[in-house]
Amino acid sequence: MQLYNLQKCSPNAFGGLLGPLLALFPLDVVLFPGIPLPLHIFEPRYKEMIGECLDQKSLFGVIRAQESTLADVGCTAEILAVTKTYDDGRMDIVAQGRERFELLEVNQERPFLRGEILYVADEPEKPTEEERARAIELHRQILALANAQQDLPEGDDPPLSYHLAGSLPLDLDFKQKLLGLRSESRRIQTVIEYFEGILPTLHRAVQIRQKAGGNGHSH
């Protein structure tokens, strides 16, 4: 995964030639298109940023941050609702992922980061019905181990791979890799491989918990 060192980014190396700058919200999160993201906004710079997005009905970009570096691919987010406001200007919002973008350059002229971006389009390659069914079944097995159920969205909006990965607390490196893949076929294959890899570990963890829970003594 390519990362951008914020200490080395110039204020505006591209001079705005690539269009309007996108406000960036660096988080230790990977957001997928179509997936909701609740956020608590409390830092002054992000209260300013979200306030502008609300006033202008504009998007902002969610991009994974690790210490002083940013990932090279993120996802735009649309604010769906402000669920709570506080007297000191803090707010709770629900946003939803919209489109993937590639981060080309970081601009630091405002209190919050902005970025020169290019939107990332998918290649037309689609998964087979067998691959889709396999991915759905593995997802169901993972949910069953947690005694959970979840309805799948109808159609392909968002793409199935984003829903399957975005609905589970999975490794962020895996999620970032998935976000960068440019075809649904490759994403579904990657999801299948990942789910098949973690299921044995999840099964063992459940068995250990069950054994531990059955070792109590009655008096």
Rank of each mutant, 00 (worst) to 15 (best):
D173T: 14
R114V: 00
G74P: 09
Q189A: 12
S218L: 11
T83Y: 02
D92S: 14
R134P: 02
L113F: 14
R187Y: 04
R45P: 04
V106F: 12
R90N: 13
L22Y: 12
L202P: 00
G19T: 10
S10R: 11
L24C: 12
S58R: 13
K177I: 05
L145I: 04
L179T: 08
L31T: 05
I198W: 00
S167F: 02
I35D: 01
L170Y: 14
G15S: 06
G115A: 15
L172P: 06
R134Y: 01
G51W: 02
L178C: 10
R64G: 03
L6Y: 05
G15E: 06
Q56A: 12
R182C: 11
L113D: 09
E184L: 08
A13I: 13
I93P: 01
L31R: 06
G97C: 13
A121F: 00
E78P: 00
I208D: 13
E129D: 11
V94K: 12
Y162E: 10
I188M: 05
L31C: 07
E116M: 03
P169E: 09
E116L: 00
H217L: 15
D156S: 14
F195E: 02
L145S: 04
A205L: 10
E116W: 05
R186Y: 04
I208N: 11
G197W: 00
S218V: 12
L18E: 07
D173E: 14
I35T: 03
D28E: 15
V106T: 14
V120R: 11
T201V: 05
L54R: 09
G155D: 12
D157Q: 14
L179E: 05
Q108C: 10
E116C: 08
I35W: 03
F25Q: 09
P44A: 06
F174E: 11
H163Y: 14
E196T: 04
F32G: 09
V106D: 09
D171S: 07
F32E: 07
R209L: 13
